[in-house]
Structure formats: C-alpha cells, structure tokens
Design a protein around this nucleic acid. Structure first.
Length: 836
RNA sequence: GCCGAAGUGGCGGAAUUGGCAGACGCGCACGACUCAAAAUCGUGUUCCUUCGGGAAUGAGGGUUCGAUUCCCUCCUUCGGCACCA
C-alpha cells in the first residue's frame, strides 16, 4: 500500500502527533471486533488462569481498581506472549448493602441502580485496555448466577456443613443486620462496612461449619502465597493445644463440668474454678445465700459490651457462687466463682484457675484472697518460690504427685515434657483427654437484608427446615418491595413472597427471609467465569478441568481473613461433596498495596483527596495511567498519589512515540561496529531484566529499565544507528517489552512499522546471551574497605589476572608505599579488596 | 502485651547470592530553542568540605577484607490479634 501525499501539511503533522484518546479508542474497538482477548480451551498450549478480585459496582471506578487491575493485566499479557493460553476474566460482586442503603435513602430499586452502575463501570473498565474476556463476565446479582449460589447452599446443607443455631451474634445497628466475626474490626469492634460499633443480639441464624476445616486451613503446603497472608490466617484460626479435664461438683446431683486448658500439667495447682457469667450451670450451682449477688453480677456483665469486658487493663471482678467442685487429682474441694474474664465464646466457658502460674488467675486470687499453690519450681531454685506474680517460666514440677520432678519448659502441647506426661496420665485415668481449641468460629452467613442471594430454605411447623427442591431454583427476589423506616428486611414484610408450601408434606410453610452474606457469592465466582451462561450446572466440567486451579490471584490484603479464607473453605467443602478436585482453589497469590491520596491519607470523598481515573485517562490516555501506576511504587507496597509524578510517565510514552515515529534515519555518520554491539548488549540486558521482573511482579523496575534503554537509544540515534539492523531489532524488542504495559501505543507503533497484527499475539523475545554479555568489566578496588580506584578487565579475566591488575594500579601502589599487602580478596567480576 | 511488615536524598523509589549506595522518575537549578511562555532538548542535583577529602541507608553495638543486605538491643510508623484459659 503506497502512501498518499498528505492533503495539507497541518493534517500530516497532526497525524504524527501522539493522540492517545483517538488511538486508544481505535484499537479497543478493533480488539473487540476481532475477539482478540477471547479465551477458549486450547489443549495445544499450557493454560494460565489469571484472576484479579472482582469489584463491587459502586458506580465509579476508583484509582485503586486501576492500581489492582492494570499490573495484573500486564502480567497476564506477558504470560500470553510467553506462550500460555491465558484466561483473565472480569465480573461484578453485585449484591450488597450500599445499593440497598441507597434504595432506602432515595427510593431507587437496588436492582436498577446496580445494573446501571455495572453498565457504567463496564465502560470504565474497558477504557483500561485490559485483556478481559467479556464473554465470560459474571454478575453475582443476576438470577442465572445466584441460582447456583443457592444451589451450593443446599449442597453444603445436605453435606451437613450448614446448620441453624441460636447464639449471641454481632449486629450492626446501622446496617440492620448480623455480621460474621471477620466483619467486625478494631478495638471498638466496629462494622467493617460502615464503621458503626456492633452490638450483641441473641438470634437464630445459619452458619457454615468452617471450623470443621480449621486444621486443613492451617496447611498452606504447595501454595505460593505471601507469608503475611498465611500468618494472618494462622493467627485468625489460632489453634491451641491442650486438654479437656472433667471436674465433678461437690454436690452429687450436679453434672460434671468440662474445662479446656493448655496447661493440664498445672492441674495440681488448680485451687478454684471460674465460670463465665453466661455459663448454663451457674444458676444450678449457686447457693441460695449467694443468689442475689450472682444474679446482680450476671445482669451487670450482660449490660457491658464485649469491648468494656475485653479491656485488658480492667481490674478483675467476680462473685462467689457458693458452689464447690472437686479437683480431680488433689480431691480437694475448690470454690466456684463467676467472673467476666472468662468468656462463654471460647473453650467451654469454664476454667480451672491456677493462680500460681497464670497471670489472670493470680490477679483474681490476690484480689479475692483465694489460695495459691505453686506446682512449678523455677530452674536453679531449690525451693518453692514465694510468689509476687504468676510464674510462667520453665522449671521442675512439685506438689504434683506423679508429676513431681518432671521438667517443665515454656512450650505448649506435647513439646513440653510435663504436659505430655499429664496428657497420657489423664487419659489413662479417664479424667480428661488431649484436645485442641480454636479461636476460629463457624461462618455466620445470614443477613437480614433484601439485596442478597436468598437462603433457599423452607420452614414447616411439622417438618422443620427443608431445602427448596432444586428444580425450583432460583428462589427469585421479588421486585415489588418497599423499605420501612424500621430497617426491617422487605422480604419479611412482603405480603406473599414468604408463603410457600412444605417440600415434604405440601402444607403451608414459610420461606427463610434472610439472605446470604455476599462473601458466599464471591467464594465461587472464579468457577462461574468458566461457563457463565451454563444453565445446567454452576460450571462446565471440561472448562474446569482445563482452567482450574487459578494460577495467579491478585487483590488486596484486607481480605486475608475474609474472602481468602472463605474461598479456601468453600473449595474444600466442594471437594468433599465431590464437585471439584484438588485441595486449593488458587495456587499463587499476590497482594497489591494501596494508593493513598496526595495528602498521604486514605482516599475518601469526605477528605476530598480522591483521584479520578477517568479524568486522568482523558488527559493522558490509558497507557500513561497504566505505566505510572506500575512505575510509581513497589506494587505490594503502594504509595501516595503524586499528580506531578505522572508527568514523567507521560513523557516516557511520548518520547517512545517521537523516537519510534521518526522515520528520518540519521545517516550522516556511519556507526561503528562497537557502537552497534553496544546497542545490542543494552537491548538484551534489558530484556533479561524485564523478563525477570515480570516473573516476580516487580513492575516498577520493568519501567525504569525500559526508560534507561530509551535513554540509551536516544544516544544511539545521535551516533547514527537508526538505519542499522541492530536499531530495527532494538525497536522491535522494545515494543514487545512495552506491549503488556502500554497495549494501545505499542499496537499503533507496531502497525506503523508495518508489522503483522497484533503485537499482543507475538511471542515474547528470546534473550541472546552472547549479545547480553559484557566484554570488559569495571571493577572497584577497595583499600581497607574504601573504594580508591576502578580497573577495567576483560570479562573472562581470572582471579589472578584481576589481582595483578589491581595491584598494578598506580593508586594502589601509592597506598602500598612499597610494602606487601596483608591480604588481597578477589570477588570475581565484582570487587577487589586490598588490606594493608 | 503478642504476631507481622516497613524505616535509604526535598519526594516516589533502586541496589540478583554480603561486593561501586542513591538506578529510574518527580521536583529544583542552569543552559539551548522562543519576542516571550509552554512544550521539547541538554547539563547538574545526598550532605559537609579548608577541594586533600570526610560523613551517610531510623539509633546503638556485633560478625566480616567488605553490611541497606546477616546477628543482638532499642526507637518510630503501619497492619493484625488481644483477659483465648
């Protein structure tokens, strides 16, 4: 195709200018028309499932979304050029409170608002130029999606993993709903979404048995996940090893009480028991003369919030119940107290108190003048200690019958010889057994809200709870709903929706009016992407077998103990039901940091420090925004936004444009062979670094390497290299390396060079190791630890040669003053160190 | 209190295994182009300096020929957990 002469010079000039807005639109349209990013099963290629956490459709794409998604996209693009068949899908986590709160506020139905927001955000997401396969889009609030969320609930129910229980639960008074333990944050125990402090309510709710998988969730074998996430999950589950011990009550008719302890070896030092005020046996053991005080204390504890009760520095309080238990090893009667430092929600709600060796019990015993019996004699001491405080260190057991003389260390569980011995003995005596306790709780999934997936259960007076028959799924949300100022769920208030028939007897029955926690929807969205239109199954088996597991998952660390733990649980549950294979859904995880406002604070509308990506795209183009987000901080760290800093990335993209569109080969001089070799060396050294950095998610240094190479190419251009084959190679490799970062401008330049469409279907270039190799090396010479000179040696120079060259240096000779050096250390290729 | 991450110029950050601290960029200064400005291009830019050098990666100590990197103590910031028996 010949080039037509330009109609007028001004137009020709405009053509040459970098116009990101026009060229980005042009290529996005072409890619879409060509289905360039459609991912289909291809058994001839290795697969790569790259997944970035799906957004909630708030209505506006935030710079944080760009920061999370564009580097993930660049990495997915890199993998594609490396020869992988890459799946990089996108969707919307579309149920949730904000849409419903907005509906209450201004009367717009959450469905309408949500789908409008999705429409808008889809457009914004497309402006990124990411390689999302939009034909795989999944929206959790769509009935074709939540049908399967409901179906999964039923499968978990049938497997015995979902159950209903009355218990004290966390309630957000502002969101008007219960929350999972994970959604309650901070010292003041506030709602993760709206920040309001939660209160306790006693309600009957649906739970998933996440604790059944506690031990398995602690096993991260084979997972390439950040250590911080693994640590957060481990601490959240908080496994502690110990024993359950039975205590008989002094009055024969009262039942036995079980306590959990991590220090069964100190049982001989248990001089009293403490029950949580809520413990069910409290009224039974309380004697008539103590009843008034006990009731008063219980009422007072109930009034206090968990926060007040949980204050660590609070002085311990409690009251005596009048009841006694028998210490099973000393056979002594020990008094039973109630105190709010014992929580009903951990262990059994009752403890054996060993004041000599537990700080809390010690403080309590001191205050109420209860007996303190030491059972551990500290190392190196020959008599029982006089206690000023609880002794929690190592030593030797005393006053402990069969345990006397056994060494004690500071380990928990069987690593401690005294505990190991006690466990065996208790078991043999039938007094107790080895036991493990977790802080981890079952997942409370009921939400008293409208805008969520209905819990597909039906309650009949005669037959209790039964799942909705699967052929009747989905249980659709009614559209004709109203919100009352009471904040109650419109599902509950709807005149007809909840009335149905019992699947067992056909009689009148009532639907569950609670909906599911939205984390239920996001626990399996990576599966829905596999076949989002599938009406016969939640996901297609062939797609599953090809694409799963997710190879690279990226997202924020704030989900460490929520989504990331739920989705692991969910996968394991589905595995045990027989629906999926493998133990883990996501092999590799990487967390990005956060973009802060220019004031170094978290971005928020109220602070007025929000950076709007749309405005940036309008001003600079998506390629520049992408490049800056990858360049300005270490990805996993994040950093404050700098509206001046982006100019640097804009300059870089423009400089690439200007240099590569300049067809005027500089032929005034003939470049030397050495200069040509120098250019190739720099190109292949850069390629090596860039490849390494893509592998390890070091996006910022990818771009600085490319900037360096560009500076080098500017010099090469001045040296007259632009007509050479080396130059052509440099340009080609440069564009390929830049393509994942700036997909539009590289596609344009690629096409202007007359190369075959599309650059995004090209293979990643191969490093020419020979070309990348340095011929000579500059090696610093240290004298007594300070760099005093640099020598240049051939790259292949041996230790002896380097040593000789260093000692021959004039400067080194000067320092030596004719003497022999005490020592010369040669670090090959790196450094010579001379010690005088 | 416990667990974890981080601390490097005016700013964001770089430094494969212990081997030239400050790559790359922002900002700033000066110069070129311009009537002028913007844009662009070029040069310089850690601090101190008696111009020989000297100091410096939160502080102090240690190991080493050599430490931003390894070890110990401490400080600061951020995140998580917290009367968890």
């Amino acid at each position: 195709m010949g080039e037509a002469p330009p109609a007028n010079p001004a137009a020709a000039k405009a053509d040459k200018a970098y116009n990101p807005q026009a060229l980005e639109k042009k290529w996005q349209a072409k890619w879409e028309a060509d289905k360039l990013y459609r991912s289909v099963i291809d058994n001839s290629k290795p697969k790569h499932y790259a997944l970035t956490m799906l957004p909630y459709p708030s209505g506006d794409l935030h710079i944080g979304h760009w920061y999370a998604m564009t580097p993930s996209d660049a990495r997915a693009r890199y993998m594609r050029m490396k020869g992988y068949n890459v799946l990089f899908p996108m969707g919307f986590d579309a149920f949730g409170l904000p849409a419903e709160n907005a509906a209450i506020r201004d009367g717009i139905h959450p469905m309408k608002r949500t789908f409008q927001n999705i429409e808008r955000m889809r457009g914004q997401l497309k402006s990124m130029g990411a390689m999302f396969d939009w034909e795989r889009e999944a929206v959790s609030a769509d009935p074709t999606y939540y049908k399967w969320t409901e179906w999964f609930f039923i499968q978990l129910y049938k497997k015995g993993l979902a159950y209903r229980k009355r218990s004290p639960v966390d309630w957000c008074p502002r969101c008007n709903t219960t929350l999972a333990r994970e959604q309650v944050w901070g010292d003041d125990r506030h709602c993760e979404r709206c920040g309001t402090p939660v209160i306790k309510k006693d309600l009957e709710q649906w739970f998933f048995k996440t604790t059944q998988y506690a031990d398995e969730l602690l096993n991260f074998e084979g997972l390439d996940w950040p250590q911080t996430v693994k640590t957060l999950q481990t601490n959240w589950i908080d496994r502690s090893e110990g024993a359950e011990v039975q205590f008989r009550m002094a009055s024969a008719q009262a039942p036995t009480v079980t306590v959990f302890t991590t220090r069964p070896d100190t049982l001989w030092g248990a001089t009293f028991m403490v029950f949580s005020p809520e413990h069910p046996l409290v009224s039974e053991i309380t004697t008539p003369e103590n009843k008034a005080a006990v009731e008063e204390y219980k009422a007072q504890a109930a009034r206090q919030s968990d926060i007040q009760r949980g204050a660590v520095d609070k002085e311990k309080t409690g009251v005596f119940t009048g009841g006694y238990a028998i210490n099973p090893v000393t056979q002594k009667q020990i008094p039973i107290w109630i105190a709010d430092y014992v929580l009903m929600s951990y262990g059994t709600g009752a403890i054996m108190a060993v004041p000599a060796h537990d700080e809390r019990d010690f403080a309590f015993a001191k205050k109420y003048d209860l007996p303190i019996v030491p059972v551990i004699q500290p190392e190196g001491s020959s008599e029982a200690p006089v206690l000023e405080s609880a002794y929690v260190g190592a030593g030797v057991m005393i006053n402990s019958g069969i345990l006397d003389g056994t060494p004690v260390n500071v380990e928990k569980g069987r690593k401690n010889p005294s505990i190991a011995k006690t466990l065996d003995w208790l078991q043999a005596q039938g007094l107790g057994k080895e036991s493990v306790n977790y802080r981890y709780r079952d997942w409370l999934i009921s939400r008293q809200r409208y805008w969520g997936a209905p819990i597909p259960m039906i309650h009949c007076e005669t037959h209790g709870w039964n799942p909705v028959p699967e052929d009747q799924l989905p249980v659709l949300l009614p559209e004709d709903v109203e919100w009352k100022p009471t904040g109650e769920s419109p599902l509950k208030l709807h005149p007809t929706w909840k009335h149905t028939t019992c699947p067992v007897c056909g009689g009148a029955a009532i639907r569950e009016t609670d909906t599911m926690d939205t984390f239920m929807c996001s626990s399996w969205y990576h599966l829905r992407y596999l076949s989002p239109q599938d009406d016969a199954a939640p996901f297609d088996e062939a797609e599953y077998n090809y694409w799963m597991p997710v190879d690279t998952y990226t997202g924020g660390i704030e989900h460490a103990t929520m989504h990331l733990l739920y989705t692991r649980f969910f996968h394991k549950a589905l595995r045990d039901i027989g629906l999926v294979e493998g133990n883990e859904p996501m092999t590799q995880l990487r967390n990005q940091g956060m973009v802060l406002g220019e004031d170094n604070e978290k971005m928020s509308k109220s602070r007025g420090n929000v950076v709007a990506p749309d405005a940036l795209v309008n001003r600079y183009g998506a390629d520049t925004v992408r490049a800056y987000l990858m360049f300005f901080a270490r990805w996993e760290m994040g950093a404050p936004w700098d509206s001046q800093g982006i100019e640097g990335s804009a300059r870089w993209v423009r400089r690439v444009w200007t240099l590569f569109t300049d067809r005027q080969a500089n032929t005034r001089m003939e470049a030397s062979a050495e200069e040509k070799r120098e250019l190739r060396r720099k190109v292949h050294q850069t390629l090596k670094r860039v490849t390494h950095d893509f592998e390890s998610f070091e996006f910022n240094t990818i771009i600085s390497s490319l900037m360096e190479l560009l500076n080098e190419m500017h010099r090469a251009r001045e040296a007259g290299l632009t007509g050479s084959a080396e130059w052509a190679e440099a340009v080609e490799i440069y564009l390929k390396m830049m393509a994942p970062i700036a997909p539009h401008v590289t596609e344009e330049l690629w096409s202007q060079l007359g190369k075959p469409y599309s650059i995004h279907q090209q293979a990643w270039p191969q490093v020419d190791e020979a070309a990348a190799k340095d011929d000579t090396l500059e090696i610093p010479v240290q004298i007594n630890g300070k760099v005093r000179d640099r020598i240049r040696v051939p790259a292949e120079a041996g230790e002896e040669q380097i040593r000789a060259a260093a000692l021959a240096s004039e400067i080194v000779q000067k320092y030596l003053e004719g003497k022999e050096p005490r020592k010369v250390i040669v670090a090959k290729g790196k450094m010579v160190s001379v010690v005088l």
